[in-house]
Computed example of a mutant assay.
Amino acid sequence: MKYKSVFDIIGPVMIGPSSSHTAGAARIGRVARTLFEKQPEKVNVSFYGSFAQTYKGHGTDVAIIGGILDFDTYDPRIPNSIKLAEQAGIDITFIEEDAVTDHPNTARIWMTDGTKQLEVVGISIGGGKIEITELNGFELKLSGAHPAILVVHDDKYGAISSVTNILAKYRINIGHMEVARKEVGKTALMVIEVDQNIEEGVIREIQSSPNIIQVTRMVE
Rank of each mutant, 00 (worst) to 15 (best):
S19P: 05
N44A: 01
G185V: 04
L84A: 10
M111T: 03
V100I: 14
V121P: 01
G144M: 01
F47Y: 13
A188D: 05
R33W: 13
T54N: 13
E86A: 06
P147S: 05
V202W: 07
I166W: 07
E183K: 15
N44E: 14
F36M: 10
T112C: 02
M111F: 03
W110Q: 07
V13T: 06
G126C: 04
N44C: 00
L167V: 10
H21W: 01
I95R: 04
T133M: 09
V45L: 07
P12R: 12
T34V: 14
A85S: 10
Y157I: 11
K169L: 13
Q117C: 05
K4E: 11
M218C: 05
D98S: 13
H153G: 02
T101Y: 01
G137S: 04
G122W: 01
I82A: 06
G144E: 02
K169D: 11
K83P: 02
I130S: 06
K169T: 13
T133A: 09
A88Q: 14
N165E: 11
P147A: 07
R181A: 11
S50T: 12
Q214Y: 08
A26V: 09
F71S: 09
I160W: 02
I212M: 10
Q39G: 04
D102A: 13
E96P: 01
K38A: 13
K156Q: 11
P40M: 13
